[in-house]
Design a protein around this nucleic acid. Structure first.
Lengths: 193, 193
DNA sequence: TAAAAACGTTCACTTAAGTTAAGAAATGAC
DNA sequence: GTCATTTCTTAACTTAAGTGAACGTTTTTA
């Protein structure tokens, strides 16, 4: 399990055995059952999440309805808004599948950064990279129709369509579950002819 | 002009006079006329932009049409995707108004980071904060209708509606210019009754 | 394992965005 | 200042998403 993490990190910086041991000794690998809620809207928390295995999602409850807006799978990190701005969370976080996470917090990070400045560089690079990726993602969302967004998802994250239920995917695509059903039927119809 | 920058930075970290001078001596303050193109799609560049005064936008050209997806105004930073992933840019960047920018590049940053590690901390914090903000932004976009998005923009960035032309705002809201016109007329009609 | 809840699909209807086109208004170039 | 271009608005029509409801299926859970 840890090897997955170190393979991932090695794409960005190289770690000494000392540094690897420092990470392991933090002892923050945790397992959760599918459906577990990691954070509720309105709560404050300092926990950041890094997905080693499985899938978690963020969702809002608006007018009594769940609106899933993001999924995080293997080697993806989520630092909840409430950790950054020290305000109550606007959204829920829960496990789509049985999931293994690394859970971090700012104090822990600060200690690691001062002991191994390299980690701060890693975090900076990861944050910058994510920011750029996410901007392009958002751009694609804005400039395409629901149907194009679905086809795009099918290309880019085909696993998600298997792993997450339709109604969660629908709000992730910015539409209603019924519209996703219809849209898929429409695509099948087109390909048939 | 520099005071604006230092006031902004002081919200995150405190700088010594030495550090402030180091920034000034980088001598990267640049002025541009409205309409100036800073980066073209397909080009490679290492320039990052920080807006001191004015407004810049990113836009794609899709099927011959400009699709504006983001605006950056005072104290906002844009590191183009192509700087991060060393690939040709997917979008254009140009000035919506006469604009004063700080232009950075990775080599310059690396030098500053090694001389003053504090700057890397600043950049990490800024990137993390932006990432969290942007996620919430995207979430709001996904969970609301074009009309709600327009009303939301009116609340959160009223200046943008004055500063940018309608057709750029339209694609920023994920709709066509005609739809934005209609939607605004609809809102006026509602408030009249 | 049986009942209840949640989920996915389909349908008919409503609403709003996309499209095409035309004309008025604003802006920029000369 | 005038002409040309771009921008904004309006309108009629098309297309697709939202809505409310029904129904079969799957998943929970008691």
């Amino acid at each position: 399990m840890q090897d997955l993490l170190f393979d991932f990190i090695s794409k960005y910086i190289s770690l000494t055995d000392d540094e690897k041991n420092a990470i392991i000794s933090l002892d923050t690998f945790r397992s959760f059952k599918k459906g577990t809620t990691l954070l509720k809207a309105g709560q404050k928390s300092n926990d950041g999440f890094f997905v080693l295995k499985g899938c978690i999602r963020t969702y809002y409850v608006i007018g009594g309805e769940e609106k899933t807006t993001a999924f995080y799978t293997e080697m993806e990190a989520l630092t909840p808004n409430c950790v950054i701005n020290k305000a109550p969370s606007e959204y829920y976080i829960s496990c789509v599948e049985d999931t293994i996470l690394i859970i971090s917090n700012p104090d822990m990070e600060a200690e690691m950064f001062s002991k191994f400045p390299k980690f701060e560089t890693l975090c900076r690079i990861l944050a910058e990279e994510l920011l750029a990726k996410q901007q392009v993602n958002f751009d694609e969302f804005k400039t395409s129709s629901p149907e194009q967004r679905y086809l795009n998802l099918l290309q880019k994250r085909p696993d998600l369509i298997q792993r997450a239920p339709q109604h969660q995917l629908a709000s992730y695509l910015g539409i209603k579950p019924q519209s996703l059903s219809r849209l898929r039927a429409r695509i099948l119809e087109k390909n048939k002819v």
